[in-house]
Amino acid sequence: MTTDTGLTVENLTVRYGGHVAVSNVSLSAPAGSVTGLIGPNGAGKTTTLNACFGVVKSAGEQHLFGVNMTRKGAVGRSRLGMTRTFQRMRLFDTLTVEENVSMGREAKAAGTTWLTQFVSSPASRRQCEAATRDALNACGIEELRDRTVRNLSTGQRRLVEFARAIANEPRFLLLDEPSSGLDVRETEGFGTVLESIVRDRGIGVLLVEHDMSLVSRVCRYVYVLDFGIKIFEGTMSETLTSPLVRAAYLGQELTDVPAGSDA
């Protein structure tokens, strides 16, 4: 296992009671590019993402840059250099944009010990300020910095959440449906920001997304889930022409589909 593989997931299985939500899914998402995870509603995409972040119980092994993180919880994984966004955004609603983004870095600095949570050193403060400035810049939301997040539109809030994740200076990022609630224009803007950050910082991204315009624009490689099973993986153009994927999206029975696809 090489360290440039970013995130690797082997034989992931998630059970809720007797119901198998995700079954035996393996995937890998390299650093420096965006990997897509798509599929119809209820296919198990978000469950897979949650399992990658250690917030649901799962079977199988997960590595981040070669480090086995299977047994780690969310905080532990985050401290390995991974963070995430949420489909239903979890923003600090009563804080300003700047404070939200700054917390991305500050939470990391505060970490797990009580002393660092209680006080901050000047050096740590400078680090936070620099990371905040860069993230606000990269996402193009400097002029919003003093606005309270509660009063922003969904599009702006998505960018704040993304900037907060960037300020955390992750090596790997899990994005959960970042375009939901955005219109065409905003989605396009988000895609541009995402592309430039992945290019500039070389981080790895696993993108769970239903908006195919965003996926086909930013993803180099795509995994397709249906009924909790990986039914396809391949490049974007392979995916768009795959009869299996089409069947999954349209709800056809698999028997209708010509055989011979590389599922």
Partner: peptide, 20 residues
């Protein structure tokens, strides 16, 4: 046809966004 609809699902948005 269903093929056309599928393309609409997957690519329609993309074309739409490019044309704006």
């Amino acid at each position: 046809s269903q093929e056309q609809l599928f393309e609409r699902y997957l690519e329609g948005d993309l074309e739409q966004s490019r044309s704006t």
